[in-house]
């Protein structure tokens, strides 16, 4: 089941400001737990931002991004009411998604 992404898209002048907060532990695979056993790597590998179904941003992340990533980006134009969608996929194949209308 896809995890929820909180997302907000606001039109400011002729730019649409998109902010998204993802919930993900972003484990590097290098940390050890209290018993000394390594905690398996689990991090977002790909992020996609789309506007009305077309991809406008594709990001390729790795273990260097911190837990619960907060992504911000600006899109050219896009009228109020259009749909912005943010989704991610991690190294284990888990996914997350969030959608909002531009305000």
């Amino acid at each position: 089941m896809a995890s929820r992404i909180r997302i907000r898209a606001q039109l400011k002048g002729d730019e649409c400001e998109v902010k998204a907060l993802m919930r993900h532990p972003m484990e590097t695979g290098l940390r050890k737990d209290q018993l000394g056993d390594p905690i398996p790597a689990r991090f977002i590998e790909e992020v996609t931002v789309s506007h009305n179904g077309s991809t406008v941003l594709a990001a390729f992340w790795g273990a260097a991004v911190s837990a619960n990533p907060f992504l911000g980006t600006r899109l050219q134009g896009g009228p109020v009411g259009d749909t912005v969608n943010v989704s991610w996929r991690d190294n284990l194949g888990e996914t997350g998604e969030g959608e909002t209308k531009i305000r």
Partner: peptide
């Protein structure tokens, strides 16, 4: 000015 708290405020 970014603060992820904006979502929690909403």
């Amino acid at each position: 000015d970014e603060n992820p708290a904006i979502f929690v405020i909403d």
